[in-house]
Computed example of a mutant assay.
Amino acid sequence: MMSHQTRVRILLFLGSTIAAISLHLCNEAVLAQSTNPTFPAALFPCLPALKQYPDHYILAQVKQPATSYYYIAVNQYRPELYIEGSPAVPEAQQYWEAMIASTRNGQCQVLLGRNQYYQTLLAFLPQPIAQQFALVRLQREIQATGGVARVQAALNQEVSNDLAFRGRRGNQVTYPIAPEKAWAYQQLGITLPPGAVVMPEPKQVGGQNP
């Protein structure tokens, strides 16, 4: 039978191992879900519009040796405000996102600005970072809509609608799923329904750093 001292040593080893893994993950991707009082001042010159919105915060950031990537949100994400028929949301209270790359020498570049359309984050982010940011975005969607089951149901309906549309438009795919979002679905246990189409990765992944 295992002695008390042996059990203590095993527990201490497991505790130190878990702590080391957690520290590694935190160094790789630092996530924040609320207003961040230490918002990097170096980002304001890159996106001056942020100063007009006191409620801005970092959703996620990934720090690499040469470049740090920031996923920023402005105002609180409240999907109920954007349901068809709801009163118009004043511009100052509208939710929007941005993604910024910042180098060690102080240069920065807006990778994704307000109301900027994109098909896949891989067009301007390296794959691991695009996946991390897509995962954070999907987690927020799950939280805002009431759970994984609701997101799964919405995805099923979206693909069903797309299949019906394809039948009328010569099999044209209306809303292909971005590769990084398909990866995020898989991580969180959401299944791509039959007929879902994942868009191919762009030939040049990651865009250009500042």
Rank of each mutant, 00 (worst) to 15 (best):
M2W: 09
T6K: 14
R7G: 12
R9S: 09
I10S: 04
F13E: 14
F13N: 05
L14A: 11
A19N: 03
A19S: 14
A19C: 10
A19P: 01
S22Y: 11
S22F: 12
N27P: 01
E28I: 12
V30T: 08
V30E: 08
V30W: 07
V30G: 02
T35G: 15
F39Y: 08
P40R: 00
L43D: 00
P45V: 14
P45W: 10
P48F: 04
L50W: 01
K51D: 12
Q52M: 07
Y53V: 00
P54S: 05
D55N: 14
D55W: 06
Y57N: 10
Y57E: 07
Q61G: 00
K63C: 03
Q64P: 05
A66F: 09
S68F: 00
Y69I: 00
R78V: 13
R78K: 15
S86F: 03
P87I: 05
P87G: 03
V89A: 01
A92V: 06
Q94Y: 07
W96F: 13
E97V: 06
N105Y: 06
Q109I: 12
Q109C: 11
L111A: 00
L112R: 06
L112V: 03
G113H: 01
G113F: 00
G113M: 02
G113V: 05
R114F: 06
Q116A: 10
Q116M: 13
Y118S: 06
L122R: 01
L122F: 02
A123N: 11
F124T: 01
F124Y: 05
Q127G: 04
P128I: 04
A130Q: 07
A130D: 03
A130T: 04
A130V: 03
Q131C: 06
Q131T: 13
Q132F: 10
Q132V: 12
F133H: 02
F133E: 06
A134L: 02
L135F: 05
G146T: 11
R150C: 12
R150E: 14
A153F: 12
A154Q: 12
A154E: 11
N156D: 15
N156Y: 13
S160E: 14
L163H: 15
L163F: 15
A164D: 13
Q172C: 11
Y175I: 04
I177L: 12
I177S: 05
K181G: 03
K181H: 11
K181T: 13
A184T: 02
L188H: 05
I190A: 04
L192V: 01
P194V: 08
G195M: 05
E201I: 09
P202F: 10
P202I: 12
P202D: 10
K203M: 10
Q204K: 10
Q204S: 12
G206P: 09
Q208T: 14
N209Y: 09
P210R: 05
